[in-house]
C-alpha cells in the first residue's frame, strides 16, 4: 500500500523525550503543547503523553510526544518506551555536566538499539542560566555532530527555541519518512522494517483491506 507522493497524506510520528528528572524536559514539552489560547487546560495524561497537530506547508503531521521515565532506577525500562519511535529529544541542563553525560549514554543506547532510523535532537535547556553554564555549546555541538544528531538551545522558562526545535525535528522526520517510502518503492514493496516505519495515512476513507498485507507484527 505504498502511498503516492504529495497530496492528501499525513504523517504520524512518535517522539520520545529523554533526560534526567531535573533538566526541565516536562516544562519544555508543556510549553510546546499547552498554548496561550488553551487556558492551561492540559488534557488527558497531562505531561506524560501529549499530542500536537501540525501542518507544514500543506503536509499534515500528527506528533505524539512520549515522556519516558527518567529516574536512574527506571533506566532498564527505556526500550519499552522508545521502541517504534521516529525521533528522540534528549534534554540536558547546561548548568549540569552530569546531565550531559546521561544524554551521551542515551545516544549510545538509542543508536545501538534503533540504528540510524531515529532522528536525534540533543537539547541544552535552561539557556537563561548562561552565567552558571557548565557545558560549553561548542563541546555539545561537536558531540552532536559526531553522532549524527542536531544540537539545539532552549529555555523552557523564557519559551525560547522550543517551537523551532520541534519544527526542525518534524521536517527531518518527514524527510526520513519520504526516503524510506522511496526505498520501499524500489525494493518491490517488501516492508522489511515492519511496524517500525512511519505510518502514512491517507485522509480519504480507507478502502477495506483486501489482502494479508497489513501485518500487525
Amino acid at each position: 500500500m505504498a502511498a503516492a507522493g504529495g497530496g492528501g497524506k499525513s504523517f504520524s510520528f512518535k517522539v520520545v523525550l529523554l533526560g534526567e528528572g531535573c533538566v526541565g524536559k516536562t516544562s519544555m514539552v508543556l510549553r510546546y503543547c499547552e498554548n496561550k489560547f488553551n487556558d492551561k487546560h492540559i488534557t488527558t495524561l497531562q505531561a506524560s503523553f501529549l499530542t500536537k497537530k501540525l501542518n507544514i506547508t500543506g503536509k499534515r503531521v500528527n506528533l505524539a510526544i512520549w515522556d519516558t521515565a527518567g529516574q536512574e532506577r527506571f533506566h532498564a525500562l527505556g526500550p519499552i518506551y522508545y521502541r517504534d519511535s521516529n525521533g528522540a529529544v534528549l534534554v540536558y541542563d547546561i548548568t549540569d555536566e552530569d546531565s550531559f553525560q546521561k544524554v551521551k549514554n542515551w545516544v549510545k543506547e538509542l543508536r545501538k538499539m534503533l540504528g540510524n532510523d531515529i532522528c536525534l535532537c540533543i537539547v541544552g535547556n535552561k539557556i537563561d542560566l548562561d552565567k552558571d553554564r557548565n557545558v560549553s555549546t561548542e563541546e555539545a555541538e561537536s558531540y552532536a555532530a559526531s553522532v549524527g544528531a542536531k544540537h539545539y538551545r532552549t529555555s523552557a522558562k523564557l519559551n525560547s527555541g522550543i517551537e523551532e526545535l520541534f519544527l526542525d525535528l518534524c521536517k527531518r522526520m518527514m524527510e526520513a519518512a519520504q526516503v524510506e517510502e522511496r526505498s520501499k518503492g524500489n525494493g518491490g514493496g517488501q516492508s522489511a522494517s515492519g511496524r517500525r516505519g512511519v505510518q502514512i495515512v491517507d485522509d480519504e476513507p480507507q478502502a477495506p483491506p483486501t489482502g494479508g498485507c497489513c501485518s500487525s507484527g
Binding site: L30, E34, I42
Partner: peptide, 10 residues
C-alpha cells in the same frame, strides 16, 4: 491549574 505540578512519566 496543573501545569506546575504536571504529572510526568516517572
Amino acid at each position: 491549574a496543573v501545569s506546575m505540578e504536571a504529572v510526568c512519566a516517572d
